[in-house]
Amino acid sequence: MLKILRYVLSVIVILFAAYGLITQNFKYSHIMTFFMGLMMLVMGLEEFRKDRKAYGWLFVVVFLFSLFVSIQGFLLS
Rank of each mutant, 00 (worst) to 15 (best):
L67W: 11
V8T: 14
L67A: 13
T33Q: 09
M39D: 12
G56W: 07
K53N: 13
V60Q: 00
L41A: 12
E46A: 08
F48Y: 13
M39E: 13
S29R: 01
V62S: 01
V62P: 01
Q24K: 06
A54D: 11
L38A: 12
I4H: 13
F48I: 04
I31E: 06
S29D: 11
V42P: 07
S77V: 01
R6V: 15
L15T: 11
M43A: 14
K3D: 15
H30P: 00
L75G: 00
L21T: 10
S77W: 01
I4P: 08
R49P: 02
I14R: 05
K50E: 14
A17I: 15
L41M: 12
V62M: 06
S29H: 08
V62W: 02
V8E: 10
L5W: 09
T23W: 10
V42E: 05
V42C: 09
V69Q: 06
G37V: 02
L45C: 08
A18G: 07
V8R: 09
R6G: 14
M1G: 15
G37C: 03
S66F: 14
L38I: 05
V13A: 10
I14D: 04
L15D: 05
K53Y: 15
K27E: 12
F35T: 03
M40R: 07
W57I: 14
E47G: 02
V69H: 02
M39F: 06
S70E: 03
M43D: 10
T33L: 08
F65V: 08
V8S: 13
G44W: 01
K27F: 07
M1L: 10
F34T: 08
H30K: 00
H30C: 04
G20L: 01
L45A: 08
D51Q: 15
S77D: 04
L2D: 09
R6P: 05
L9C: 07
S66C: 10
V13T: 10
V61W: 03
G20Y: 04
D51S: 14
M1R: 09
S70A: 12
M39Y: 11
F74A: 03
L58R: 06
G73W: 00
Q72A: 06
V62G: 02
E46D: 10
I71M: 09
L76F: 00
F26Q: 01
F65E: 02
K27Y: 12
M32F: 03
I4T: 15
L15Q: 05
M40W: 05
F74D: 00
L64G: 03
V8I: 15
L58Y: 10
L41F: 12
G37Q: 02
S29F: 12
Y55F: 14
Q72W: 12
E47M: 13
G20H: 05
Y28D: 03
V69L: 11
V11N: 06
